[in-house]
Amino acid sequence: MRLMTVWTAFRILYRLLRTLVLSGASGGHALPICLKHRLCLKVGRGLRTRRHRTQAIFPTMFSICVLVSLFRIFPNARAESPADPLLVFAAASLADAMTEVGQAFEVVESTEIVFNFASSSILARQIKSGAPADVFMSADEAKMDDLERGGWLVADTRHSLLGNQLVIVVPVDSQLKLSDERDLVPASVTRIALADPRSVPAGIYTRTFLQDQRLWDTLVPKVIPTANVRAALAAVESGNVEAGFVYLTDAIRSTRASILYRVPIDEGPVISYPVAVVRKDRLNPLATRFVSFLSQPEPMRIFISHGFIESVRKVSVGEKPGSEAP
Rank of each mutant, 00 (worst) to 15 (best):
S254C: 11
D173C: 15
L260Q: 12
D212C: 12
S188A: 15
D145L: 05
V189P: 01
V200L: 01
L147F: 02
E148R: 12
P171F: 10
A195P: 05
R207I: 06
A155E: 11
L153Y: 05
S238N: 13
E148D: 11
A195E: 04
L153C: 07
A232Y: 01
L184F: 05
W152G: 08
S199G: 10
T218Q: 14
K177I: 13
V185H: 11
S138K: 05
R191E: 10
E237N: 09
R253I: 07
S179F: 13
A202W: 03
S138I: 01
S160C: 10
T249P: 03
K143P: 07
L147G: 01
M144A: 00
D212G: 15
F136P: 13
N228Q: 02
N164K: 06
Y205H: 12
K222F: 01
L166C: 01
I192K: 02
K222L: 02
R198I: 11
P221T: 08
P186Y: 11
Y247H: 04
R207E: 03
K177D: 13
E181P: 10
R256I: 11
I224E: 04
T190K: 15
D156L: 14
T206C: 01
V200D: 03
D183G: 08
D266S: 15
L153G: 09
L215W: 08
D146V: 09
V229L: 09
R253M: 12
Y205C: 08
A235C: 10
D183H: 07
V154P: 05
R158K: 05
A232K: 04
T255A: 15
A235S: 10
F209K: 05
P264D: 09
T157F: 00
S138G: 04
T226M: 09
D145W: 08
N228G: 01
G150V: 02
S160I: 04
P186C: 05
D196W: 04
V241D: 04
E237G: 07
L161K: 04
D183V: 02
M137C: 12
V241H: 03
F245M: 05
V270H: 13
D173L: 15
L166S: 01
A235F: 09
G203H: 04
L210R: 00
Q213C: 12
G244Q: 02
D266Q: 14
I168E: 03
Y247L: 02
L210F: 11
A227W: 06
E141S: 06
Q165H: 05
Y247C: 03
T157H: 02
V167I: 10
P197D: 04
S174T: 06
A193W: 11
I224M: 05
S188C: 14
L178M: 04
N164W: 00
D266A: 14
L233Y: 07
R253E: 11
Y205R: 08
L248K: 09
S238A: 15
V200I: 03
I192P: 06
R256P: 11
V220S: 15
R214P: 09
H159M: 11
T226A: 06
S188Y: 12
T208P: 02
G244H: 00
R149Y: 06
V236S: 04
G151C: 05
I265H: 14
Q213H: 12
V154Y: 09
D196F: 02
V263Q: 10
D173S: 15
V169L: 03
D140G: 03
S179T: 13
K177E: 14
